[in-house]
Design a protein around this nucleic acid. Structure first.
Lengths: 215, 215
DNA sequence: ACTTTACTCAGTATAAATACTTAGTTGCAT
DNA sequence: ATGCAACTAAGTATTTATACTGAGTAAAGT
């Protein structure tokens, strides 16, 4: 198996040196270089192109996401694994869009680093499990939020759904085989219950409360 | 460290036996039992409660998702790891909601099984990388969908946002210091461009196209 | 120079939504 | 059996939204 040459990009020297030491114990690793910012990285790239880059996201000046885009534009073959303190989607989604093959958290174990190298160098992707738990818990939070605080009756829910579909009261009345005035009344009651004052408010309420599917 | 007692639930005998053999080589595992359906599983649960269950999703009769819900209702302390042939979100999302702590694919390596046991028994989640990348790519797809196909001008976008906030045309006119008739006209143009026919349609369009934040 | 686009404003008319009030029916629960 | 909640319906009035037409100005691009 070919030995791996890699570059660590991080503005904290201590972190860089620690990771450097840990990585140097791996047999697969051949050469490790370090950069603390974009300029240093591009200088290293001129000298020799590595197979792998560990890229910190929170860099002063040009951030890791922007650097990743630039590096991949000129060197598409390099595998980039993102490093972040936080499992927040405002970090990893842009990073993945930028082309990072992996995303691991700084406070996860070194086995995460090892696994990420193995998978990414095999042409696969690798994401920390913590990211998923963030996604899942966000999903669950939303699901729970949606279920509660919904005092609408069945009929009212049905009518609110129809409103969101863009139907007028007359059309809803025809669809449900009831009087237009009844729909008027329901709509009025829904406005009261949802504490909104017009159609726009109704639709927003419906979405926030999961009354209409809108993932 | 306490030894783990677990149950394998799968309707394919050969798969069950193979996984049984592999698992029996792990030091952490103490006792392995097998069930091929819901009835057999609940029979085993009566005899002795395990710490862990590997649950196949595609079971004849009551499926793995439903069984997971029932098991966790009566035995919330049991850790359940789902097994599936497919990395499809129609499988894993309901399974996660049902309370499974892990989700691995049948065609991934045995190290996935080992890792899932370690993490789940430590009170954490574990999901196959394939699932994580599926979730993330789904999110990326959505983000990209939102950006395109938005012919609205700046002013129109501004007005659409105000509409979504529940403002009437008069209120929007005051807010932007323009005539109410101008807002009328903008609104008319937005209706045309978005191919919608009323306020509800406008709000739905705004959400689908990411014109208003709505995570 | 010319066209296009965005933004602005108005007249006129109709349709729809909002507000407030009253009231009959049904089914369910205490 | 009594009351409550949901669903139904209508009268009346006002406010908003939608539709179609016409038009001026400013900026930007060809």
């Amino acid at each position: 198996m070919e030995k791996i040459s890699l570059i660590l990009v991080d503005d904290h020297q201590m972190f860089r040196e620690g990771l450097h030491l840990l990585l140097s114990k791996l047999n697969e690793i051949d050469k490790i270089r370090e950069a603390s910012n974009a300029a240093e990285l591009f200088e290293l790239l001129k000298q020799e192109v590595p197979q792998l880059i560990f890229m910190d996201i929170d860099l002063p000046g040009t951030d890791g996401i922007e650097i990743t885009r630039e590096v991949l534009k000129s060197h598409p073959s390099i595998n980039i694994i993102a490093l972040s303190m936080y499992a927040d989607e405002v970090y990893y989604l842009p990073m993945i869009e930028a082309g990072a093959k992996g995303f691991i958290l700084k406070n996860s174990g070194f086995d995460d680093v090892e696994n990420s190298i193995k998978r990414v160098m095999a042409g696969k992707y690798y994401y920390s499990q913590e990211i998923l738990s963030g996604l899942i818990s966000a999903r669950n939070r939303k699901k729970h939020q949606q279920k509660k605080n919904n005092d609408l009756s069945e009929r009212e829910t049905e009518i609110l759904q129809s409103i969101c579909l863009g139907l007028s009261n007359i059309e809803i009345a025809e669809k449900l085989n009831i009087s237009k005035r009844t729909v008027d009344k329901h709509r009025e009651n829904i406005l009261q219950k949802t504490k909104t004052k017009n159609t726009a408010g109704l639709v927003m309420f419906a979405i926030k409360n999961g009354i209409i599917p809108m993932q």
